[in-house]
Design a protein around this nucleic acid. Structure first.
Lengths: 158, 158
DNA sequence: TATTGTTATACTCTATAACTATA
DNA sequence: TATAGTTATAGAGTATAACAATA
C-alpha cells in the first residue's frame, strides 16, 4: 500500500472540484501540443517502427544540406549538446548514412558527409514525409494551410 | 577514434548536397513542432525550474476537475500506461497535492482527490498559465488566435 | 587558454512484463 | 478470468562534468 493511501479525510486534505475553465480549456499552448502529438502519431504510422527518429532524420537532413558541417555546429543547429550529437552521428554512421571525414586544417574536428546510401534513405523518407504532409493537411484548404503556417511562425518568433 | 571516422572517400560514400526544399521546408509538421518547442521554452521560463512538469500539471488538473477518478482512468486520459501513472501519483502525493482515498466498493482501486494545498498550487499555476497564454499570443490578434485554434483542432482531429 | 570530440554518469519519461490483491 | 495497482527493468533522449587531442 502506498504511503499516502490512507491519509485522514481532514478538511486540509479535502477539496472540491475546479471548474473546467482551468488549464485545459481555451489554451493555445495546449492546442499546439495536442496537434503536435497527433501529427507525430500519424508520422510514426507512416514511417514505421524501424525508421530513424525525427531528431536523427533532421540531423541527416542537415548534414545533407550543409555538407562538411562539424559536430559542434550540428549540435548548435539541433539545439542539443555536443555529447548528444556524438550518439546521433554514431548511429547514423553505423547505419552507413553519414561519415566523419578527417580534415587537415583542424585535426580536432570532422567534416560530416552524407553517403550515397544516406542520400537514398533521405529521398525515401522525403517521399513518406510528403505523404504525411498531405495527410495532416487533408482537412484544411490550401489557403488555410498557408494561414496556419504563418500564424505558427508568429507564435514561434519570440 | 570513431569506427567510421576514416572511411575511404569512394564514390559510394560521397554525396552532393540536397536542395533546401527537403524535409525542413514548407513543412506544416515541422512548423507545428517548432511552435510547440518554442512555447514550451517560454512556459518553462515562466514556471521556473522547480515547477511540476506539464504532464504532472495536467494530471493534477484532471484530478481536480474529476474528483474520485481512479488511476486506470487517469492513465487513459493522459494516454500513458497505468505503471506511468503510479509514478505521477506518487510524486503528486509526496508533494501533498493529491491523495489516494480508499473506497469500500472496490478495494482494488483508489479514488484520487486533490488536497487543499494541491488546489492552491493549481490556482497559482493557473495564474502563471494565463500569463503564458497572453505571452505566446502577444503577436497575433484575437481573431487570429481563434482562427489558429480552429485550424489546430482540425489538424488534431483524425 | 579555448575548442572539438569523447566518455561516464545520471535523470526524465515512457514502455513491457510479471506480480498481488481483489473482483 | 479479468481488473487495479504495483514493481522491476529497459530504452530513448537529454544533460553535466571531466578528459585527451589539438588549436
Amino acid at each position: 500500500m502506498r504511503q499516502n493511501a490512507e491519509a485522514p479525510d481532514t478538511a486540509s486534505s479535502q477539496a472540491r472540484p475546479l471548474s473546467y475553465t482551468d488549464l485545459q480549456n481555451d489554451s493555445l499552448g495546449y492546442a499546439i501540443k495536442r496537434a503536435q502529438v497527433r501529427t507525430y502519431e500519424a508520422l510514426f504510422r507512416i514511417l514505421g517502427p524501424s525508421a530513424l527518429s525525427p531528431a536523427r532524420m533532421t540531423a541527416l537532413s542537415i548534414v545533407a544540406t550543409r555538407p562538411g558541417v562539424n559536430q559542434s555546429e550540428l549540435a548548435e543547429m539541433l539545439s542539443i549538446t555536443r555529447a548528444g550529437v556524438v550518439k546521433i552521428v554514431d548511429a547514423l554512421g553505423s547505419l552507413g548514412y553519414v561519415r566523419r571525414q578527417s580534415i587537415p586544417d583542424d585535426r580536432r574536428s570532422y567534416a560530416l558527409r552524407v553517403t550515397n546510401s544516406g542520400l537514398a534513405e533521405l529521398r525515401r523518407l522525403n517521399g513518406l514525409m510528403q505523404r504525411h504532409e498531405r495527410q495532416i493537411a487533408a482537412r484544411i484548404t490550401k489557403a488555410e494551410r498557408r494561414q496556419l503556417m504563418g500564424l505558427l511562425e508568429k507564435i514561434a518568433t519570440e
